[in-house]
């Protein structure tokens, strides 16, 4: 049984004639790294929003761990799947960077000491320690992206969906992120990466899904194939 399963999923935005997604069939295993690529506007972001329940499929079914996604509340999905929006601003709502990272833990009843320890760890790892008392929306684009990723990772979800995680990251920070994602993957946590960044995708993903015009074009297994290595 796949961890996330999409069956004949079709989705149209309200007041739009043409569906944004048509007849999507996809399976994601819990320990697998999948990349989704495709031209602007082909429906990648829409697809991820459907998978975490922000949008509801017009037709078709989505299953998470064997149960229909519609059975879960948004918070239940959120505690299983960590999602980072394409626009990190949408995820930042606290007054300081440190609070932002600790928000989920604090409000789910973690004891303060553990919370502080984890905040410190993620601030260090994503090199945000200097900004810990700054206002999140004042950070630079790349810093916001790192903060959004850190805040999501601090919750330790079992699966990740990252929409354009490398946008705005410099080469060094990209490498840091890559290493961290690899580390998580080794712990058996899978992820979906939506990205235009081919070298990044090729270094991480075991499978690449190409989309065009709201449909799946090609679904490539690339296990053991390192020919693309950039």
């Amino acid at each position: 049984m796949a961890y996330l399963e999409l069956r004949q999923v079709t989705f149209s935005y309200p007041r739009k004639m043409k569906p944004a997604l048509t007849g999507i069939n996809l399976n994601f295993e819990k320990e697998e790294i999948t990349a989704i690529t495709g031209p602007n506007g082909c429906g990648k972001t829409t697809l991820t929003k459907l998978m975490i329940g922000i949008l509801k499929a017009t037709e078709g079914e989505i299953y998470l761990a064997g149960r229909p996604l519609t059975d879960y509340s948004l918070a239940e999905i959120g505690s299983r799947i960590g999602y980072v929006f394409q626009k990190p601003d949408l995820l930042l709502f606290c007054s300081t960077v440190a609070e932002e990272i600790g928000f989920g833990l604090t409000n789910r009843g973690c004891d303060p000491e553990t919370v502080q320890k984890r905040i410190k760890f993620y601030l260090d790892y994503f090199e945000l320690t200097d900004y810990r008392n700054d206002f999140p929306l004042h950070l630079s684009q790349g810093e916001k992206e790192r903060l959004a990723i850190a805040a999501m990772l601090a919750n330790e979800p079992e699966f990740l969906i990252l929409d354009e995680p490398t946008i705005g990251l410099d080469a060094y920070r990209k490498k840091l992120l890559e290493n961290y994602l690899k580390k998580i993957a080794r712990l058996g946590r899978g992820m979906i990466l939506v990205s235009h960044d081919a070298p990044f995708v090729n270094r991480l993903a075991e499978r690449v899904v190409f989309m065009a015009d709201g449909r799946i074009q090609v679904c490539n297994e690339r296990k053991g194939n390192d020919g693309y290595e950039a």
Partner: peptide, 14 residues
């Protein structure tokens, strides 16, 4: 958006 983001952090606001 904010309410959605909070829930996505696993907090059942209700």
């Amino acid at each position: 958006n904010v309410i959605t983001a909070i829930q996505l952090r696993g907090i059942e606001l209700k």
